[in-house]
Design a protein around this nucleic acid. Structure first.
Lengths: 162, 162
DNA sequence: CTGTTGTGGATAATTGTTATCCGTAAATAT
DNA sequence: ATATTTACGGATAACAATTATCCACAACAG
């Protein structure tokens, strides 16, 4: 199990792994960093940098957005967090499954969820064969409306005249 | 053929389609707009807004980046151009295949190419069944190094000592 | 011809993120 | 312990792609 990168690790093992990785590379485990790691290891909602900051600033009054960004970039460079980039809204971060996997994104409320479906390996191989690219990573996003937002739009919609 | 949205139309028919669409919706076909449409209909390299602007400013000295953005957003709202968003670099636009399709992106030179591979329909259906989302669109990107950049990095790399 | 609307272009504003700078805390050596 | 070096955190400024604002002007309607 430990050697299967495509299983979701428990929050505890993810945290331990990230801490270990920082230690190995001679980075200090400061209170601020540890707090950010904990949020990443326990969040399944793909938080933004601002989400992380707001979640921590009450308990760590000196926490700064810059520190959150710095830590996220550090983890990113070590492959310990997956960054989902968006041009029109804040990037989201996944510290629990820091490897490429599909996402389903609600364009109404911004929720990001992981479908169980895996396996773009075969498709990736086809693309490699066809284009000659050396593929390093990929990204597969589905955009739509989540069940909760769908429910709300139904209940707030104008009646259909009947 | 005309009814198959997943075929690449000729540049001419794409241009005609976009012009027709603007007319239908009571938009004027100004020289600036027509020029932008022509670039979009003939480019297969997924240009950025700045690419389009630079390509036109010599022939249309009054062309402004703002006009390019406005026209792109107008076409986007009509579903006549596909926007590929990037958070760390400029967005790219595809006016020839304005429907979701995979892209292969070179992280060295920024080239964006379309692989022949199609068909995320089955996967999309699976995601809908599992998540309950109402899926409107999707995006599938592969990131890597294109053959040309790979060649360059080989020829400029230090010899391996042997 | 006159009033109304739509458009283009210059410019300012926006926003998430990054760079810069400096005081300070931590690690190491002495 | 003390001195020295390094990394770090936090405040602030800078950045860049895109959008909003504003106004002059062209096209169109009456």
């Amino acid at each position: 199990m430990k050697n299967n990168p495509h299983n979701v690790d428990s929050a505890g093992s993810r945290l331990a792994r990230m801490v270990e990785r920082l230690k190995e590379t001679d980075h200090r485990i400061t209170p601020q960093r540890l707090a950010i790691l904990q949020v990443l290891a326990t969040s399944d909602g793909h938080p933004s940098a601002e989400d992380i900051y707001r979640q921590l600033v009450d308990h760590y009054p000196t926490m700064s957005p810059a520190t959150v960004y710095k830590t996220l970039n550090l983890l990113k460079s070590q492959g310990e967090v997956l960054e989902l980039e968006f041009s029109d809204l804040a990037n989201r971060y996944d510290g629990r499954k820091p490897y490429p996997h599909p996402h389903v994104i609600c364009t109404a409320c911004g929720a990001v969820v992981d479908p169980a479906f895996q396996g773009l390996e075969e498709i990736t191989a086809r693309v490699v064969a066809e284009t000659g690219f050396q593929i390093h990573t990929h990204r597969l996003d589905f955009f739509g409306i989540c069940p909760s937002c769908r429910q709300q739009s139904v209940s707030t919609a104008k009646p259909e005249k009947g």
